[in-house]
Amino acid sequence: MEPVLRINNLQVTYYTDAGRARALDGVSLTLNAGEKLGLVGESGSGKSTMALAMMHMIKPPGRIEEGQVIVGDTDLTTLTKEEMLKARLEKITYIPQGAMNSLNPVMRIGAQMVDAIKAHYKSPSKAEMAEMSMDSLESVDLDRSVFKMYPHELSGGMKQRVCIAIGILLKPQVIIADEPTSALDVVTQRQVMETIDRVQETLGAAIILIGHDMGLMAQFVDKVAVMYTGRLMELSTVREMFTNPQHPYAQALISSLPSLDNKGVFQGIPGLAPALLRLPSGCAFHPRCQHTTEICTTMLPRLEQMEGGRMVACHLYTEQV
């Protein structure tokens, strides 16, 4: 099957007064249609930068240094500003963190949806646009009457679903959801995730779910990519990740999870994520790692393919390969 999304060696740097911060350092990924990928990592690990880079929305002082983001057969990084405007929503869509707060409080939901359609199509009739919007609202389990409402008339979960409805208006092939439920409580969270799930199935789109809630990942995605200081540490199927994580950082992440069996055991990851401006030499995780050897402090481990197609970037496994 032809992959719907290919990311090749994506690099993003922020040029700050204090120096250059490599927020994304050579990330490569492929995703097939209908696949769900979870992107996890601590704050500052480059998850959101990755989403912004894919959307071509990195603003100065940040810059995409290298790499390609190929959706279908178009390389998004080569598009002009106008072409990119068209590509957003049509090919790739982004549901940002706290999206529900991005709705304009003085415009009706419908007007905001129609706005998005107008930006892409030349001359649809009013009725057509309304019909499209209402269909989209229906597909996220909202009443058609929401079209005529203002954002303040909706609850947090409903607003979040409106944002999903806007995101899928033009049936994109790739959906990026950046912590879509971080401000919602468990019941609403489940409802929103079930909505995304259903929408994805009908569209056959690929989804990248960004977040740090491993529980949500276990329930939702097929593959998990663990990021740390802008690099991929491990990429494997959700089952492999939860039953047998390979990278020490992934292992620490998994064992820090609360579950029903280990009541009262708190196993955080010692230490803090390093600042991007002062990355440790060699593997960036080595100061916090339990298995550090000499080579870890000097040489950056490469992302190597292991048995069964999973990818791990750690010296522990390079000798065996």
């Binding site: 609850s155 979960g157 409903m158 468990v186 019941v187 609403t188 969270q189 489940r190 409802q191 995730m193 079930e194 809630d213 491993m214 529980g215 949500l216 990942m217 276990a218 329930q219 939702f220 959700v238 089952r239 939860f242 039953t243 998994i254 999870l257 609360p258 579950s259 029903l260």
Partner: peptide, 25 residues
């Protein structure tokens, strides 16, 4: 029961949606 069923447990053998109550706001 609804609340507890809606927790995304980091456990592949414990899936969402085992109760008959629909998740709703």
């Amino acid at each position: 029961r609804l609340l507890i069923d809606s927790i995304p447990w980091p456990d592949l053998n414990r899936r969402w949606g085992e109760t008959e109550i629909k998740a709703e706001e």
